[in-house]
C-alpha cells in the first residue's frame, strides 16, 4: 500500500521528464546507435540498415591517411596551449582586479573584458580576418609603424596556431576570470588582518594566503580541462583556417567535417568521430576522478 502511494506521488515527476526523455533518446541516444556506421561502408540512400559491413576497414583507412598523426598532434597542441593560457591569464587578471580599490574602474574593466565571450566565432572571425589581414589590416598597419614587416597571421602555418591561442584567450580570459574573482572574495579577510599584524609583506600575503586560497579552484578547473584536450575549438578554427594552414591548423573536428559533410564519406568520418568520443570520455572520466580527489569536486 505504502509503495503504491509512494509511486503515485512520483508520477508527476515522470510526467515532467517525459518530453525531455523522448527528445534525448531521439537526438542524443539514437546517434550513438548510428556509431555502427563506423564499421560500414555507408551507401547513399541505404542508411545504417542496408549498408554493407566492412569491419575495421574505415579505421585502417584512417591510419593510412598521410596527415592523421599531424592532425592529432595539431589538436592536442592547440588545445593544450589554450588550456594552459586559459588558466594563467584569467588567474592573473583576477588577482589584478582584486587589487583595484576603485569600484567604478573595476566595474568598467570587467564590463569590457566579459563582452567578447558572448560574441560568436562567426562575428569574431569577421573582425579578426579584417584586422589581421597582411595588406589592409589595422594590426599589421600598427606593426608597420614600428618597422615590423607584415605578418600573415591567418595564412602562415607557423604563426596560425599561435593566432588561434591568442584570439581564444582574447575572447575568453575576462569571463574566465569571474570564477577566480569569486574564489578570491571568498577568502577569509581575517587571514589578511592576521598577516598584517605579523608584518607580512604584500608579496608574502599573495604567496601564503591568496594563492592557496584559490588553488582549489585552479586545480579543479585545470583538471576538468583535461577532458577537452581533443577539443581544439571547431567554431574558431573552422571560421579562420584555410588550406594554407592545414599543416599546423587542421584539427580532428575540421577533418571530420571535410571527410563527412563535404566529401560524404560517412563511414570514415564516423570512425574518426568515434575515436575522438571514446578518448574524450576516458579523459573526462580520469579528470572527474582527479578533480573529486584533489579539489573535492562533484557535478551534482
Amino acid at each position: 500500500m505504502l509503495l503504491r502511494k509512494k509511486l503515485s506521488r512520483e508520477i508527476p515527476l515522470f510526467v515532467m521528464l517525459t518530453p525531455a526523455v523522448v527528445l534525448v533518446l531521439v537526438y542524443a541516444y539514437a546517434p550513438m546507435v548510428g556509431i555502427v556506421m563506423a564499421f560500414q561502408r555507408v551507401l547513399p540512400g541505404k542508411g545504417i540498415f542496408g549498408s554493407p559491413w566492412v569491419g575495421l576497414d574505415n579505421f585502417a583507412f584512417i591510419l593510412r591517411m598521410p596527415n592523421i598523426l599531424q592532425v592529432l598532434w595539431n589538436t592536442i597542441r592547440i588545445a593544450g596551449l589554450k588550456a594552459a593560457a586559459g588558466v594563467v591569464v584569467p588567474v592573473t587578471v583576477a588577482l589584478m582586479l582584486n587589487n583595484v580599490t576603485s569600484q567604478a574602474f573595476k566595474r568598467t574593466v570587467q564590463t569590457i573584458i566579459y563582452l567578447p565571450h558572448f560574441l560568436s566565432w562567426v562575428i569574431l572571425a569577421g573582425i579578426f580576418i579584417d584586422i589581421l589581414s597582411p595588406s589592409e589590416g589595422v594590426v599589421n598597419h600598427i606593426l608597420g609603424l614600428v618597422g615590423i614587416p607584415p605578418i600573415f597571421f591567418l595564412g602562415n602555418d607557423k604563426v596560425f596556431p599561435w593566432t588561434m591561442v591568442v584570439t581564444d584567450v582574447w575572447k575568453s580570459f575576462g569571463f574566465g576570470a569571474i570564477v577566480y574573482l569569486a574564489a578570491l572574495t571568498d577568502i577569509d579577510p581575517t587571514l589578511y588582518e592576521a598577516a598584517v599584524m605579523d608584518g607580512a609583506s604584500r608579496r608574502q600575503q599573495t604567496r601564503h594566503i591568496t594563492l592557496p586560497g584559490i588553488s582549489g579552484t585552479i586545480i579543479m578547473l585545470s583538471t576538468l580541462s583535461l577532458g577537452n584536450i581533443l577539443n581544439a575549438g571547431f567554431d574558431q578554427i573552422f571560421n579562420l583556417y584555410s588550406p594554407l594552414v592545414y599543416r599546423t591548423g587542421d584539427i580532428i573536428d575540421t577533418l571530420v567535417y571535410r571527410i563527412g559533410i563535404a566529401n560524404y564519406q560517412y563511414g570514415v568520418a564516423t570512425a574518426v568521430g568515434l575515436f575522438k568520443s571514446v578518448v574524450s570520455l576516458l579523459l573526462i572520466g580520469i579528470a572527474y576522478k582527479l578533480a573529486a580527489k584533489w579539489a573535492d569536486y562533484r557535478i551534482f
Binding site: A20, V24, V26, Y27, A28, Y29, A30, P31, M32, V33, G34, I35, M37, G47, I48, D253, V256, Y257, G260, I261, Y266, A269, T270, G273, L274, K276, S277, S280, L281, I284, G285, I299
Partner: peptide, 17 residues
C-alpha cells in the same frame, strides 16, 4: 541526461538522425 554531455555519437550520426 549527463551521459549525453560526456559522450556523443559524433557529427555524422547526429546529422543522419
Amino acid at each position: 541526461f549527463l551521459l549525453t554531455v560526456l559522450f556523443s555519437g559524433g557529427l555524422i550520426p547526429w546529422y543522419m538522425v
